[in-house]
């Protein structure tokens, strides 16, 4: 009888130990996964910042390239374009349903 209760006690302890090990392993795995995801997220955030920075630079370059000081001389010299006289500008007026000015 006493021998039986001793073996069931050991079994309980063993089960507890196994449970502890499994739980600890799960916690470690979860933390490891979390850390890995954190590194990935940080890397993606860095990439987002880099791309955002690149976007700002490219948009500024586009604005610069499409500005009048850049395009005006090209349009005049290469394409022979010119600023029209005021008499050549047709002003169209158009009413809207709500009475605003489009």
């Amino acid at each position: 009888m006493a021998k039986r209760s001793l073996s069931s006690g050991r079994l309980l302890i063993a089960c507890g130990l196994v449970g502890f090990v499994l739980t600890a392993a799960a916690v470690v795995a979860r933390r490891g996964y979390g850390h890995q995801q954190g590194v990935r997220t940080a890397a993606l955030e860095g990439r987002q910042v880099a791309l955002e920075s690149e976007r700002v630079r490219l948009e500024a370059a586009i604005r610069d390239a499409s500005s009048r000081p850049r395009l005006g001389p090209i349009a005049e010299k290469r394409l022979g374009m010119r600023v029209p006289a005021d008499s050549q500008v047709v002003i169209l007026s158009r009413a809207t349903r709500s009475g605003g000015t489009p």
Binding site: R82, A85, S87, Q88, V90, S98, G99, G100, T101
Partner: peptide, 25 residues
């Protein structure tokens, strides 16, 4: 600007657009 060299147009082109009433609102 070269606009000053622009000759005046000889005629006014009538566009097929109906001029709406003046918007006051």
């Amino acid at each position: 600007a070269s606009a000053e060299r622009t000759p005046q147009p000889a005629k006014t082109v009538a566009l097929p657009l109906k001029r709406p009433a003046r918007v006051t609102d």
